[in-house]
Amino acid sequence: MIPAPFDYVRVKSADEALAKLAEHGDAAKLLAGGHSLLPLMKLRLATPDVLIDVGRLSELSYVRDEGDEVAVGALTRHHDVATSPVAAAGVPVLAHVAGQIGDPQVRHRGTIGGSLAHGDPASDLPAVVVALGGTLVVQGPRGRREVAATDFHRGFFEVALAPDEMLVEVRVPRTVGPWGFHKLTKRAQDWAIVGAVAVTTADGLGVGLINMGPVPVRARAVEVAVAAGASAADAAASAAEGTEPSADNNGSVAYRQHVARVLVRRALEDAGV
């Protein structure tokens, strides 16, 4: 349970982090809260040569009301999102879900940017940001660019970040009215076997699925059905359409698809559909 040796660099600004990334390339990893990376390193499933500690970049820790959107700095801890009055007022689903990640100790260290950049389809936040139609702000040597959340997740643990880029901000639209979030776990601290989120923004209904494929899934068929006037139950029947969940010790493909339909229905009902 000891990581392989590595060099450690603590940076004081995002620019410095980018400079270090450029210097070390693939051999380096950004270290934020470390709650995705360090467990892998302890089991020696990840062996970066250099860790660039961005954990103290307070410039990237904030939850800001920006009118139609709420902007969350990439290094904002889950605990701070969960307890943010700005998040609670503007995007309550985000605060709620951030407050359910891992356990309190994990939420005291883990960050929203770390969670999204890790690209684990079983984690909760990516699906919520996808359902919200959020935008991820990425900074690199070529400047800043914005990526739609739906385009950010490319594959299993694979995101649209070049080795010399870092995620700096997550922007999500304000939600309107009630929302729903349900996840099925064996134990409270487990990753979701399946999860579903339903939210309404100015752009309409967004439905997201957790752990139903290699990337967080936007359940478009459900959204279309609701827009066409379908009931929650009828719309949820198409929740698993096109999904490719993996099978493991916690659930077969068929079981996960069934649970997705159940949880989407419940989330839609909570969201007032």
Binding site: Y8, L31, G34, L38, D53, R109
Partner: peptide, 17 residues
């Protein structure tokens, strides 16, 4: 750490500097 609970197996001593 800073008055908040953390799992000290998942924090580097360097991070706690």
């Amino acid at each position: 750490m800073g008055g908040e609970s953390v799992k000290s197996c998942t924090v580097l001593a360097a991070q706690a500097d």
